[in-house]
């Protein structure tokens, strides 16, 4: 919440409309306002899907689908929540539907090539390793971690999106981070080695 407030107040002071104002304006038929919103959120939303879906083309498709859903539902938009939460809620819904459909298809056509990586990206190894490591986490913890680390959502927003109490979000995030840390930084950590490292840093 703090970060959001900070952000919106910063936006107001800079004379820029907030997301919610833009969306409200778009729902009244102003296309320029949507263009601004799209400019702000196209990359974050694509990132949201890209990190959760292995296939880049599919991620792009889902991004497009989400924005189209926003456009279609614009006349019914009620600025009761932050636009950011609204957008990611739509994204999550579309992602779940995609996963369900893909899994159902896989029942009959065989398992999909889960980790197909685009060749054009640099730093492939890191990305591949991170994706693998995150993929080993529990599905819910994965989601909480990704929403926190990449979408920069507050605990409250994550709880709202996933319908979880805030304490659960915090404890699951804590577990996810420890597990991920063990997976990428210290594959087989020992308490004494960790202690030594921490002391060294201090």
């Amino acid at each position: 919440m703090d970060s959001t407030n900070r952000r919106s107040s910063a936006a107001e002071s800079a004379g820029v409309s907030s997301d919610e104002e833009l969306m409200a304006a778009f729902s009244r038929g102003s296309q320029n306002d949507f263009d601004q919103l799209f400019l702000r959120y196209k990359q974050p939303l694509f990132g949201f899907f890209r990190r959760r879906v292995a296939d880049a083309a599919q991620a792009e498709e889902l991004t497009q689908e989400s924005f189209l859903a926003v456009i279609r539902a614009s006349s019914r938009y009620q600025p009761s929540a932050l636009f950011r939460t609204y957008l990611y809620a739509i994204g999550l819904k579309i992602l779940r539907a995609h996963r369900r459909k893909a899994a159902f298809r896989a029942c009959f056509t065989g398992a999909p090539d889960a980790y197909r990586e685009p060749a054009a990206l640099g730093d492939l190894e890191t990305e591949y390793a991170l994706r693998q490591a995150v993929g080993k986490l529990d599905r819910l913890e994965q989601e909480i971690l990704l929403l926190r680390e990449f979408e920069q959502l507050s605990y409250a927003e994550i709880g709202e999106l996933l319908h979880l109490p805030m304490n659960t979000v915090r404890s699951r995030l804590f577990r996810a981070r420890l597990a991920l840390h063990n997976l990428i930084v210290a594959p087989v950590p020992t308490s004494s080695a960790e202690q030594a490292r921490i002391e060294e840093r201090a």
Binding site: K42, Q43, R51, E60, E127, L130
Partner: peptide, 15 residues
Amino acid sequence: RWGVAPVSQKLENAV
């Protein structure tokens, strides 16, 4: 370090 490629022009145009 887990970066994501920029959104393609095709997507932007479609939306």
